[in-house]
Design a protein around this nucleic acid. Structure first.
Lengths: 264, 264
DNA sequence: GCTTTATTTTGTTATTTTGACACAATAAAT
DNA sequence: ATTTATTGTGTCAAAATAACAAAATAAAGC
């Protein structure tokens, strides 16, 4: 891994280039067969898990910062990324926060960072803005950051305890995902380019966390007129093979603007 | 007006008590007979209009700051207030911003504030978080702030040019209002406690900016089971008088949690 | 090759919802 | 008593929904 891919190193060298008191945390959603997953960083030695995040350069917009951070973690360039909430409560700074700061400073010192300015900067109050991303996890190459040993996909219903209020941030992101479902490019962002109706249904079921009626789901989806039917996918199983579909991108985007009037 | 109601005075005296680089701007919606209105501040001498806003104390959460700011402008204590977006683009800092800073510094100097720290603080990059509020404008007592001469309700379709990106902030707030319509306590927050179905319909028409069919609107609304029918309102006109309604608060809130499945 | 098995795709049908318009009820003015 | 404007309720065809049924089909077993 190149040093230029480690933003905290840059940050340590040039604190003055970053806005103080503001950070960004990203909830990156991926979908794998049955499960909705989230990209997490694991701090092996310190036993901590957290969301990918970072800081904002003075010369850079918040959106640019979020894209930069996500590119560093996923290697993806054009990501569907939405800001969803800014977390500015003082409740963030309880004992869990203090515990986190100790670990952070420990890691920094272990890596040879000892100047007081940096250690103090990290320990001050931050207002963090949450972004959620929808990506095809098959196309990502997860990379740990300065503080972490691994970067991996974890199923949404098996999340470990995360630092500070990061569990809360994930919960909020998921709420936004559900509420805005009809306005977000769920399918096209989270699925591979070719998929079956069952894949699509499982995705919606994972997000809504409730089962949907198979035949009605299929008919209603197809009626939207945003799919292109491709060849059949021979599954090798002793039964009828499903058709593969891809999205008609133009029609999909047109429909999204008005909101897909889909009832689940 | 008391000096304690003028937050910028406090701010000037105690810059160190506020977070640098973060601000709050509020889009306060009210509804008056036919029109959706927004609360604006007018800087008479400098010919500027802006949204009510302010800064965040170090000891205070962002939500508390927004409530404090709105209490100062409206005299209301329990306000429906939702954070909707954080504006962190660098495009905010174009010529319009520089123009605004000049005016701000002029006002400060006219009012006897001349220390460089304050003048510089004001001119730095701010990330501003937008909140929108829904209030019964009949219950408000609009108060101008340190920079403004008047604080008044302006119809949403007759907004003047506002400072920096405040027009954009209003547009974004309105978008959120529309998209989240079925999850927000529109009626109970914006209407007086007793209202007619026509009042309610005009409110929805103002937000959605499209006409709705009278009889169907009425039937569908009443079917939600969240209204209490009161006495008739004698209008004095030569025609049938409408019933007055109030909300059944408990049922209304229950319904809002799932989202009112209303189609318009 | 014929039958079995599991799954997909298309059909059917009763019920509910929607949208558009009709009509009766009614408060005040003429 | 009649007129007028608006409200509240009625009607009805078309569309959408939900639940279930039946036909189609890819591979395995015999």
């Amino acid at each position: 891994m190149l040093k230029t891919d480690q933003p905290v190193i840059d940050f340590v060298n040039e604190i003055k280039d970053y806005l103080p008191g503001n950070s960004i945390d990203c909830v990156v959603f991926g979908f794998d067969a049955q499960q909705l997953k989230v990209l997490l960083l694991e701090w092996k030695d310190e036993e901590a898990w957290c969301l990918p995040g970072g800081f904002i350069k003075i010369s850079e917009s918040m959106d640019d910062a979020a894209h930069r951070i996500l590119h560093q973690r996923t290697s993806l360039n054009s990501i569907f990324l939405n800001q969803f909430f800014t977390f500015g409560s003082t409740a963030r700074y309880g004992p869990k926060f203090k515990d986190h700061i100790k670990k952070t400073q420990k890691v920094l010192q272990n890596k040879g960072v000892s100047d007081k300015k940096t250690l103090g900067w990290i320990a001050s109050r931050f207002i963090t803005t949450g972004y959620f991303a929808l990506v095809d996890l098959r196309k990502t190459h997860p990379q740990p950051d300065f503080f972490s040993e691994t970067c991996q996909w974890i199923a949404i219903d098996k999340l470990p305890e995360l630092i500070i209020d990061h569990n809360h941030i994930v919960t909020k992101a998921l709420e936004h995902l559900r509420v805005q479902l009809n306005y977000l490019p769920i399918g096209i962002s989270l699925l591979p380019s070719k998929f079956t109706m069952q894949d699509l249904q499982r995705l919606y079921e994972a997000i809504l966390q409730k089962p949907l009626e198979r035949s009605n789901f299929q008919r209603k989806m197809l009626k939207l007129g945003i799919f292109i039917r491709l060849e059949k996918q021979m599954t090798g199983a002793a039964n009828k093979a499903p058709y593969l579909y891809s999205f008609d991108t133009e029609k999909y985007n047109q429909l999204l603007e008005k909101g897909i009037g889909f009832t689940y």
